[in-house]
Simulated scan of single mutants.
Amino acid sequence: MNELEKLLKYFELEHLEVNLFRGQSLDIGTGRIFGGQALSQALKAAYLTTEEHQVHSLHAYFLREGDCNKPVVYQVERARDGRTFSNRRVSAIQNGKPILILACSFQKFEKGMEHQKAIPKVPLPDELTEKTLIPGDKIKHLSPRMRRTLTTQGPFEFRFVDDVDPFDSEPKEPIKRIWFKARYPLEADQSMHRTLLTFVSDFHLVSTATLPHGVSYLDPKLQFASLDHAMWFHRPFQIDDWLLYDCDSPSASEARGFATGHVFDIKGNLVASTAQQGLMRMWDKPE
C-alpha cells in the first residue's frame, strides 16, 4: 500500500454498537495521538450515522493527550435530524475518559447566494519545489522520533510559498502559505475528501502564532498544544488536487496563540476556513 492507502485504513472504523465505533491510532512520531487524527476519526464516526448530508461545520475541544499505542472509542449522539440539517456530538474516549469532544453540523446540498474573498497572489505550486521542513544541517540535532516525523514522506505533499526554518529565532510576520495535496489519486466521495482535509488542517496552522516571537514550536522549553479547532466547509473540492492553505495569526495573549486559515483550490475558489487556538507557554521542562 502507498502512504495514502495506509492512512485511509485508519478511517475504517469498527462498528461496536449503535452509535459506538472504534478507531486505531496512528503514530506520526510524536509519542501522542495527532490532533488531526482524533478530529477526522470523530468526523468519520459522525458521517457513519448520517445519510445524504455533507458536513458544513465542526467545532472541537482537545481535552487530554491521547496514547497512540491504544485505540480510541467514538460515541456519537444524534442531536438532531431535520429535513435540511443534521447535528451530531461525538466523544472520543480513551481509558474511560474523553480526549476530544466534537460538535458538527451536516446539510443537504442546496443552491444560494455566493461571494468569497480572493485567493492571495502567490506562486503556483508548479513554480515551487517540495523541501524538507528542517534544514539538513539541523536534522541531526533532533531526537530519532522527531527526525522520523519531520523527514518521512507522508501521504500529503507540501510546497511552502516562503521558506520557514522552525529553528530561526528571527521574528517574522505571522503568515504562512502552503500548497498541499494528497500524493496519490483518490477515488472517493466528497465525505472522504472533507474528512481528509480535517486531518491535514491540523498541520502548520496554530504554529503560525509562534512566528512573531522568534521561538520554535520544536523548542523543548515551549509547552505547545492545540486547545480547540473549528472548520467551515464552503464548496466541494478534491484533496488529490492542489489546495492553498493561507494561515495567519491575528493574536497571541494569556499563554494562547490564535490562528485562522483559508483553503483555496487551484482555481481560486474558497473551499474551507479554519480557526485554532493553542497553548503557548514557556517553561523549564525537565530533560
Results as ranks from 00 to 15, higher is better:
Ile178Pro: 09
Val164His: 09
Leu142Pro: 11
Gln190Arg: 01
Leu43Thr: 13
Gln24Ser: 15
Gln153Gly: 10
Thr198Arg: 09
Arg256Pro: 13
Gln41Cys: 04
Phe237Arg: 11
Asp241Glu: 15
Ala45Arg: 12
Gly23Leu: 10
Leu197Gly: 10
Pro250Gln: 06
Asn95Tyr: 11
Leu124Cys: 13
Pro98Ile: 03
Asp202Lys: 01
Phe85Gly: 01
Thr30Gln: 10
Arg159Ile: 01
Ser201Tyr: 00
His59Asn: 12
Gln37Tyr: 08
Ser25Gly: 04
Cys68Asn: 10
Gln223Phe: 06
Arg80His: 12
Ile119Phe: 08
Ala42Leu: 04
Arg177Cys: 13
Asp189Trp: 03
Ser91Arg: 15
Met1Cys: 06
Asp240Gln: 05
Ser57Tyr: 01
Glu14Trp: 00
Asp165Asn: 14
Ile119Glu: 04
Tyr10Arg: 02
Asp248Arg: 05
Glu187Leu: 15
Ala209Asp: 06
Arg194Phe: 02
Thr274Gly: 06
Ser25Phe: 02
Gly96Tyr: 04
Arg22Asn: 05
Gly261Trp: 04
Asp165Ser: 12
Thr50Leu: 03
Lys172Ala: 14
Thr151Cys: 03
Gly261Thr: 05
Gly257Cys: 07
Leu222Asp: 10
Gln116Val: 00
Ala275Cys: 05
Ala275Lys: 05
Phe180Pro: 09
Gly112Tyr: 00
Gly29Arg: 14
